[in-house]
C-alpha cells in the first residue's frame, strides 16, 4: 500500500465550536468526514495534506430532520441515511434517488451529503438535484458566525466554491415541495454501480393546479461542465408552457451546455443524452 504523504497528524475536535476554531487556526488541515474521496486522493498522491481535521462523529454536523417547511440535512448525514429517511422519501424523493446511485452500498454508508457538496466534483451525483430543489448551504465560521448560500451560487468554477478557508459546511437545507412540483433525477453512468456519471440530471417543474402551465422550472446537469450547472434558458423556455407541451423545450439545452470528450464518453453523446433524457421526462410529466 503506497501513501505519498508525510505524517499527517489528525486534529480531533469534539464539538462544532472546537472544529471551527481548529479550522481557523489550522487552515492547512484537510477536513475529513467519511473519507471516501479524501482517501482516494491521498492514495493517488493527488493531495498531500500535512494534517486532517476529523469531523466524523461531531453531533452538530449530523441529523436529518424536518423543520417547519424544509428538510435539514446535517453535513455528516450519509447517503444511506438519506435513502432510509422517511422524511427525505416524502419531501425529496429525487434526492433519495440520487443517493441510491452514489458508488455502491459501501460508499453510501460512509460518504456524506456534505462531502459530496464540498468535494465539488462536476460529476457529483447529488449536486444537480440540490440545484433543482433550490437547496441552501449553511456555512459556519468561528469569526463570522453563520450564513446561507443558495446552491445556485455555491459552485463557482472547477472545484472552486463560495466557502472561506475558515468555514465549514454544517447543513444542507432543502425546501419542501409545493403541491404542483414534479421532480426528476436520472444518472446515465458508465455502469450500473460503482459508476461515474456521463450525464446526471436533476429537474423540477412547478405546475399551476388550475391551468397545468409551468410557473417555475429548474433544470440542472452534472458532468457536462466544470461545475454542476443550471440551464436558465431552458428553464425560461419552460415557463408558461402547458403540461403535454413541454418536451420541445428540452432542445434549448443544446444551446447552453458544452460538454467535453473524455474516457467516459464523448461530447456529442453527452449532449444528445442530456437532451433526450430531459425530453423523455418532460413528455411524461
Amino acid at each position: 500500500m503506497s501513501l505519498h504523504i508525510s505524517a499527517a497528524p489528525v486534529l480531533e475536535p469534539r464539538t462544532l465550536a472546537e472544529a471551527l476554531d481548529l479550522r481557523a487556526s489550522h487552515p492547512e488541515a484537510m477536513p475529513l468526514a467519511g473519507g471516501t474521496d479524501v482517501m482516494v486522493y491521498l492514495e493517488g498522491g493527488v493531495i498531500d495534506p500535512p494534517r486532517f481535521l476529523n469531523l466524523w462523529g461531531i453531533a452538530e454536523l449530523g441529523g436529518l430532520s424536518r423543520t417547519g417547511d424544509a428538510l435539514r440535512i446535517g453535513a455528516l448525514v450519509t447517503h444511506t441515511d438519506v435513502v432510509r429517511s422517511p422524511d427525505a422519501q416524502a419531501l425529496a424523493p429525487a434526492l433519495v434517488e440520487a443517493c441510491r446511485t452514489v458508488g455502491a452500498v459501501q460508499i453510501q454508508n460512509r460518504g456524506t451529503i456534505g462531502g459530496n457538496v464540498v468535494n465539488a466534483s462536476p460529476a457529483g451525483d447529488t449536486l444537480p438535484v440540490l440545484l433543482a430543489l433550490d437547496a441552501e448551504f449553511e456555512l459556519h465560521s468561528a469569526a463570522r458566525g453563520q450564513r446561507r448560500v443558495p446552491a445556485a451560487q455555491f459552485w463557482q468554477g472547477y472545484r472552486r466554491m463560495d466557502l472561506a478557508p475558515d468555514e465549514l459546511l454544517v447543513a444542507v437545507h432543502v425546501p419542501a415541495p409545493s403541491p404542483g412540483d414534479r421532480t426528476f433525477f436520472r444518472k446515465v453512468g458508465t455502469r450500473q454501480a460503482q459508476s461515474i456519471s456521463k450525464v446526471v440530471l436533476g429537474a423540477r417543474v412547478r405546475l399551476d393546479a388550475a391551468t397545468g402551465t409551468v410557473t417555475e422550472a429548474r433544470i440542472a446537469y452534472g458532468s457536462v461542465a466544470a461545475t454542476p450547472v443550471r440551464c436558465p434558458a431552458t428553464e425560461a423556455a419552460l415557463i408558461g408552457r402547458r403540461r403535454g407541451d413541454l418536451a420541445a423545450a428540452a432542445d434549448t439545452v443544446a444551446t447552453e451546455i458544452r460538454p467535453i470528450d473524455d474516457v467516459r464518453s464523448t461530447a456529442e453523446y453527452r449532449l444528445a443524452v442530456a437532451v433526450r433524457v430531459l425530453r423523455g421526462w418532460l413528455a411524461a410529466v
Partner: peptide, 24 residues
C-alpha cells in the same frame, strides 16, 4: 475504493476499509 475487496462491516454496515481513515 473501486473494487470492494476490502469491504468490512462497521456496526453491521459494509464500508470500504481502504477509504476509511483508521483514526476515524
Amino acid at each position: 475504493g473501486d473494487c470492494g475487496a476490502c469491504t468490512v462491516l462497521i456496526d453491521g454496515e459494509p464500508v470500504l476499509a481502504c477509504c476509511t481513515l483508521a483514526a476515524t
